[in-house]
Amino acid sequence: MIKHMFPSSLAMLGMVSTLALAAETPASLMTQYAQKAGVPVSALSAQRGAALYRTEHAGRDGQPVSCASCHTASPQQAGRTRVGKRIEPLAPLANPQRFTDAAKVEKWFRRNCMDVLQRECSAQEKGDFIAWLSQLK
């Protein structure tokens, strides 16, 4: 029975830690990324963030890919994964859950930057990206 209970207690621990991590806001994440990049928050650029989102790169199969491939031309709209599952909008105004969980944000930057750019994004690029998304109305 102990073995049976174990996964559920782990799950509860997980919930507690997610709550603790979920205390971020787009603004607090921008501050953290700017700090990591060694620049003031005012040096983050929405324009560079938009370019990061739209610039197309050669994908693994030769097809051009960009962040917009899955998140669509407008980050205020829902996107689609390659398998066809809905992705909720990235822009915080359209989806208040975005950029509130540092671990989740880091996980998806790592994965998606590797897929699209074939490298990790820098702290400055991540800050630019959030700066652009958070001023979309």
Binding site: P7, L10, A11, G14, M15, T81, R82, V83, G84, K85
Partner: peptide, 14 residues
């Protein structure tokens, strides 16, 4: 039901 499985293996497909 399994928290990590449901959270991590269902964002791109079911």
């Amino acid at each position: 039901t399994h928290k990590n499985w449901q959270q991590e293996c269902a964002s791109c497909h079911l």
